[in-house]
Computed example of a mutant assay.
Amino acid sequence: MQGIAGQRPLLIWVVHLSVAALVLLWTIPTFGLLVSSFRDGDQLSVSGWWTALTATERNIIFRAPASAAQVQDGDQWVIAGNVFEGQTEGEVTAFGFSSKAPAAFAPGQAAEMRRGQVLEVSRNGDFRIASPEEMKGKRGARIFYTSIDPPRFTLENYRNVLFSEGIGRSFINTLTVTIPATIIPILIAAFAAYALAWMQFPGRALLLAVVVGLLVVPLQMSLIPLLRLYTDIGIGKSYIGIWLAHTGFGLPLAIYLLRNYIKGLPKEIIESAKVDGASDFEIFIKIVLPLSFPALASFAIFQFLWTWNDLLVATVFLGNNEEQLVMTGRLRELLGSRGGNWEILTASAFVSIAVPLLVFFSLQRYLVRGLLAGSVK
């Protein structure tokens, strides 16, 4: 016993360190996503979130104005401007006029171009192209420069996500899908779980085995057959169809989870109620449901998170109709088909998880109790 007792502190430390490592592994990417959601899009595309507080070096190509913008200055023709042109100013560390040598000159140096033209770029971004002859051409010269930009943070990413056209409608659509798709399977599963736990009828064990078997069936197998069936009976591409689809996909887990919990309730309570003349329906409504709230809450968390973050089922059963487009579909369109707007992606990620986080933290105290239900006697 002394050896076992002596090992307990070591085991406890191992468990604590393992939990801390898991928390860290999940927290670091989430924190990085949060930081990235406030960063400037140009800086986010060239550097990681861990460099958010340091200056960023960028290699940029700037197209100078065309020859129509030139003015005569003495015996020279001049085109002038600033390479940052309305952007937040940075600091030019090198420049060039050829892609073969984009950083050949230091700020302030005179770079001789073709036809006697001379290019000068100062450290603050001001440039000057001077030519002894009048410049011609519809396109301006290219200026390559290396810029050191200070850290930039903005709320524009969240403005684009929150106030883009149609986002409010999509939010309402998502709630319209999620709330009934969470409540309906809970109601059905609660009745079924009570029947499988306490009521005696032929085929109960077989029915329970079927429910457990359905837990491993991938929902992708049934999407097209279900859609064809719904279309034939007239509920395809409608809210009723997607409610029934989410109900069917969520019922096996709900029944299994609730049945384990209800089966673990004290047998004496059920028997005493039956002796007093209570029917199964009265026992279920007045005794079992109030005692099963932890299990109901734990499943509600899973089902709500699943339906809120769903894109596949919503696309299949609702489509991309503007009037029925959910949040995930709207944010996908806002991001673009190429997925290059990382600042929109990171901001939309936090917008989309705001409601699930609120639900989770409201019900999380019941989660463990519900998941462990029926595991011990």
Rank of each mutant, 00 (worst) to 15 (best):
L253W: 12
F317C: 10
T247G: 12
V313P: 00
D280V: 02
S272I: 03
V210N: 08
G250H: 00
G250N: 14
G250I: 01
L312R: 03
I240L: 13
G234K: 00
P218R: 04
K263Q: 11
L289E: 05
L325D: 06
I285H: 06
S279Q: 00
L311C: 02
D232Q: 14
S272R: 12
L227H: 08
I287T: 10
L214I: 03
N260A: 12
T315P: 02
I235E: 01
F317W: 02
V275A: 08
P225Q: 04
K286F: 08
L312S: 09
A209Y: 10
L219K: 10
L227A: 14
Y256N: 12
G264A: 15
A278S: 14
T247S: 14
I224P: 05
E322K: 12
A254I: 07
V217C: 07
S298V: 07
S222G: 15
L253N: 02
F249Q: 01
R259Y: 05
L296A: 01
V275C: 07
V313C: 01
D310A: 07
A297V: 07
T247L: 14
E282Q: 11
L229K: 03
A314F: 00
Y239F: 15
V275K: 01
P290S: 09
A300L: 08
D276W: 00
T307N: 15
T247P: 09
I235P: 01
F317L: 11
K286A: 13
L253Q: 10
I287K: 08
H246Q: 05
F281K: 06
N260F: 05
A209R: 15
L251K: 13
Q324N: 11
F284E: 06
I255Q: 09
A209L: 13
K274I: 05
L229Y: 04
S292A: 14
I285C: 11
R259W: 04
A297Q: 05
V216F: 13
L229V: 15
A314E: 06
G236T: 12
N309Q: 13
P218D: 11
P294H: 01
I224Q: 07
G213K: 10
V275Y: 05
D310Y: 06
L253R: 05
P290I: 07
K263I: 06
L223N: 09
V212F: 14
I270W: 00
G250D: 00
L289D: 03
P218S: 08
A300Y: 02
Y239S: 07
A245K: 06
Y239W: 14
V216Y: 13
G319M: 06
G213A: 06
V313K: 00
G250Q: 05
A209C: 05
I285W: 13
E271S: 14
Q220I: 15
A297W: 02
A245V: 14
L257G: 03
S292Q: 11
Q220E: 12
L215S: 04
A314V: 04
L311W: 13
I283N: 03
F317E: 04
E323G: 01
K237I: 02
I285P: 00
K267I: 09
K237Q: 05
Q303E: 08
E323V: 08
R228M: 10
E282T: 12
L223F: 13
L257D: 03
L305Y: 02
P266V: 11
W243E: 06
L325H: 00
G241R: 10
F293K: 15
